[in-house]
Design a protein around this nucleic acid. Structure first.
Length: 263
DNA sequence: CCTATAGCCTGACGGC
DNA sequence: TGCCGTCAGGCTATAG
């Protein structure tokens, strides 16, 4: 699930539930999710401290640890949080942060494709992973969007999902953005005119914002969104949705509404 | 530079 | 019911 809107919702959840509480205990149930740190180090640097604030960049969530750097969450394909009371950890819990109030924040990963890291600065982590600007950052302007796509010669779907160009968009939301922009996923970036690029920027921002406003819940998304019914029929024309492979990922689109400029 | 593929992991689903 | 292949909202390394 976790693309930019989902991670933003997780951030809000963490803010609401787990900020400013003293961390009594850290438990790592799955060492393989640790990136550049150890269970021992996490315990020594987190226990007795608290999460002061959160920051999201693309699909990554950073939680500020009082005077002690940042804990970084990456949710892989199946990650999420669960703030629960007591000792019974939810299924698929890989790490638990227990607070002095008797509640705990569980970091869940069904498949173990997520990561947990501890870093001194957000910038260094971003640099190390080659992450471009956050797709929803206020400072990520139309000019930046044009610049990001300028030197690429790939399918537009692939470009939108390229975390080096802009961070946060994955397989599902790239499909939604291209559906709303009425662009075929295999359109080459070079085929797009200035007007289309500009429109795509607006659409990208609108789709991501609408998803965040919906709590990243397909049931609450606008009626014209493809996501809730991407394996069924087009919410606009009612036609059949087609599935093709683009950049090694499944792309769902409406052949009637989304045509390549050249065809 | 770009695309395709495999691998990392687990679970759900469809076909037989 | 059971087994098997396929696929899944991410990312990385490698090959062509």
């Amino acid at each position: 699930m976790p693309e930019l809107p989902d991670v933003e919702v997780f951030r809000q959840y963490m803010n609401k539930k787990a900020l400013h509480r003293t961390i009594k205990q850290v438990q790592i149930l799955e060492d393989t999710i640790l990136e550049g740190t150890t269970a021992k180090q996490l315990k020594s640097r987190l226990e007795g401290r608290a999460f002061d604030s959160t920051f999201r960049h693309g699909k990554h969530l950073f939680a500020k640890v009082t005077e002690n750097g940042w804990l970084v969450f990456h949710f892989g394909m199946t990650g999420r949080f669960d703030y629960f009371r007591g000792n019974k950890t939810p299924e698929h819990t890989r790490a638990v942060f227990s607070f002095t109030n008797g509640y705990s924040l569980a970091f869940l990963l069904q498949r173990k494709l997520g990561k947990l890291a501890l870093v001194d600065g957000k910038a260094e982590y971003r640099k190390k992973h080659g992450l471009g600007p956050d797709a929803m950052d206020k400072k990520f302007s139309l000019a930046d969007f044009r610049e990001a796509l300028k030197d690429t010669n790939s399918t537009i779907k692939s470009a939108l999902m390229n975390q080096e160009l802009m961070a946060g968009i994955g397989n599902i939301y790239s499909d939604e953005i291209l559906f709303q922009a009425r662009l075929h996923p295999k359109t080459n970036t070079k085929e797009l005119g200035v007007r289309q690029i500009d429109k795509l920027y607006q659409t990208t921002r609108e789709v991501l914002q609408a998803a965040i406003d919906s709590g990243a819940d397909p049931e609450k998304m606008p009626d014209n969104f493809l996501i809730p019914q991407r394996k069924k029929s087009c919410p606009v024309c009612g036609g059949d949705i087609k599935k093709i492979t683009v950049s090694g990922r499944s792309a769902y689109f409406c052949p009637n509404c989304q045509k390549k400029p050249s065809s």
